[in-house]
Amino acid sequence: MSSSTKPYMIRALHQWCSDNGHTPYIVVWVNDRADVPLEYVKNNEIVLNIAYGATKNLQIENDWISFSARFGGVSRDIWVPVGNVMSIFARETGEGMGFEVEPAVEAVPERPTPEGDEQPDGDDPGPGGRPSGRPSLRIVK
């Protein structure tokens, strides 16, 4: 079984945006697997600026996208399963690509824990929710 092309497409479109002076944004389906500021979530979705200038330590791995960013002046660590990414697009032109949300049932390993961090006992996120219907892309301004 071959690996998903999704993380490769996300990395490629992120690089294309950066090379062309555009701002890459991702739309993420938020469930219990995504660690994002919940106060900015609407309809189980959040739009995140993933430009190098807006993030710190951005990593787009095959399973996770992680970085630190400021929300309301407060630095927050963001962890998003690649399977939860619904689209990536350039803010300035709207060009990009949409994806289906992938189920989290054993498809995405647990979030990596940095050395020295311990997770509390009984913190089992369980299988994530999945949106119903066809995926759609909205223009966000």
Rank of each mutant, 00 (worst) to 15 (best):
Q15E: 15
V27L: 08
N20M: 08
H22F: 12
P81Y: 03
P24N: 06
V41A: 01
V85H: 07
N31S: 15
E45N: 11
P81C: 10
D32Q: 14
L38P: 02
M86C: 15
S87H: 13
K42H: 14
V47K: 02
L58E: 04
D77I: 05
A34T: 14
N62G: 08
V36S: 08
W29S: 14
N20F: 03
D32C: 07
D63Q: 14
N57G: 05
I60W: 00
P37I: 05
F71I: 02
A34H: 02
D19K: 15
I88C: 14
V27P: 00
E45L: 06
E39A: 10
V41R: 04
W79K: 14
V74Y: 09
T23F: 11
V82I: 15
W64G: 12
R91Y: 14
E39L: 11
V28T: 15
G83P: 03
V36D: 02
A54Q: 04
Q15G: 09
G21I: 10
V47Q: 05
W29C: 12
N44Y: 02
V85A: 13
H22I: 02
Q15T: 14
E61R: 15
R33H: 14
A90R: 03
M86T: 09
I26P: 05
P37T: 07
K56H: 12
G53K: 09
R91I: 01
A69N: 04
P37A: 09
T23N: 10
A34K: 08
C17S: 14
G73T: 06
V27D: 12
S18Q: 11
V47W: 09
N43Q: 12
A51K: 10
F89Y: 15
V74T: 07
G73I: 03
E39W: 12
Q59I: 11
L48K: 06
T23H: 11
V36L: 01
Q59C: 11
W16K: 15
R76V: 08
D63Y: 00
L58I: 10
E39D: 10
